[in-house]
């Protein structure tokens, strides 16, 4: 594979086995393949419940029941070896991958810090777990690091509830960066923030990416963030990737009907017309539609869409789409 790949995701099938009134399988991620490059911000967009957070968990290898992976692999090309994340044990993932190579910024990150732990202990423990250093050394590094990131020094002795939401958010980002990982997975990092704070947080992320030249995989339903931040964007619908393109191309020339509708629903300055929503609702993933999963809501629906799922093909340079409008059947 190409030299600059940071993460290679091959044909992932995964979902949830839910036991409720008998058991059923929620098909959250279906045949997803992605190649994520070094030094890029890669966005994954889609409505809530389309499987984007699930995909992120699978990439990270955080598999807790009822989540299972049926098939597929995630390859992490390191300097001297290729690590297949999903074939490691969780213990090995913890030792070799988590935070050393890939770190994570969770959803709702204002409220994810342990309320009974001081900020410094968060840093110290994460460094001790992944960097193999003594407590004292870790503490010095943490203070030094916070200083460099421009966070006030006395924050280090505080408990989470004594800090503002924005500060906590920045600390969580700092925690994700402290081990200088190659890849950062961000799961809706700015949702539930007000616009001003959102901007600050995203700025911090983008700046750090520019200096560290690492890879950020950004999952959010907010297309504006993708447009502003991401180099490339993948659009996900009902567990499948329907389109991948550079963000410029995607926003200027969307190919997939779903992408087109998504973009049409965004407000534009000076436009007083009522925006159009997407008709219908996302499918129930425990019984997804046959063929193209978007066909019940698609205005261009053809006969074949009902029976055969379309493949993801390169319609233009660096622009992939999974739709019969472009694969010319």
């Amino acid at each position: 594979m190409s030299q600059d790949a940071a993460l290679i995701i091959n044909n992932i099938f995964g979902g949830y086995f839910v036991k409720y009134n008998g058991s059923k399988y929620v098909d959250a991620v279906n045949d997803v393949s992605l190649l994520i490059r070094r030094n890029e911000i890669f966005g994954i967009a889609g409505e809530s419940g389309c499987g984007k957070s699930t995909l992120l968990k699978i990439i990270y290898g955080y598999l807790r029941p009822p989540l299972i992976v049926k098939q597929g692999s995630v390859i992490l090309p390191l300097k001297d070896e290729k690590v297949s994340i999903l074939s490691l044990s969780e213990e090995e993932r913890r030792r070799k991958v988590w935070w050393k190579v890939i770190s994570w910024i969770p959803q709702n990150s204002m409220n994810v810090l342990n309320p009974t732990m001081r900020i410094k202990d968060n840093f110290v423990e994460i460094m001790r777990a992944h960097m193999n250093i003594a407590k004292k050394e870790a503490m010095e590094m943490a203070i030094d690091y916070l200083h460099k990131t421009g966070l006030p020094k006395d924050v280090i002795n505080a408990f989470p509830h004594q800090l503002s939401g924005g500060m906590r958010q920045r600390l969580v980002i700092a925690l994700a960066l402290i081990t200088k990982p190659q890849i950062i997975l961000a799961d809706e990092p700015s949702t539930a923030l007000d616009v001003v704070m959102q901007r600050g947080v995203l700025q911090l992320l983008a700046n750090s990416q520019r200096t560290l030249r690492n890879t950020i995989v950004m999952v959010t339903h907010d297309l504006a963030i993708h447009a502003m931040l991401c180099d490339r964007v993948a659009i996900m619908y009902a567990g499948k990737i329907v389109e991948i393109a550079t963000s410029k191309e995607l926003f200027e020339d969307p190919l997939h009907p779903y992408t087109q509708m998504l973009l049409a629903s965004l407000p534009r300055l000076g436009d007083k017309e009522l925006r159009q929503g997407i008709r219908g609702s996302p499918p129930d993933l425990s019984a997804p539609p046959k063929g193209c999963r978007f066909h019940p809501r698609c205005t261009y629906m053809k006969e074949i869409c009902k029976s055969e799922p379309p493949l993801l093909v390169e319609a233009d340079k660096e622009h992939f789409v999974s739709c019969y409008l472009y694969s010319g059947v």
Binding site: P106, N108, A129
Partner: peptide
């Protein structure tokens, strides 16, 4: 709780 989930994701040792 979110903070427990975050702790797990951080790959902190089980005893911790």
């Amino acid at each position: 709780e979110d903070y427990y989930y975050y702790g797990e994701i951080q790959g902190l040792p089980k005893r911790l």
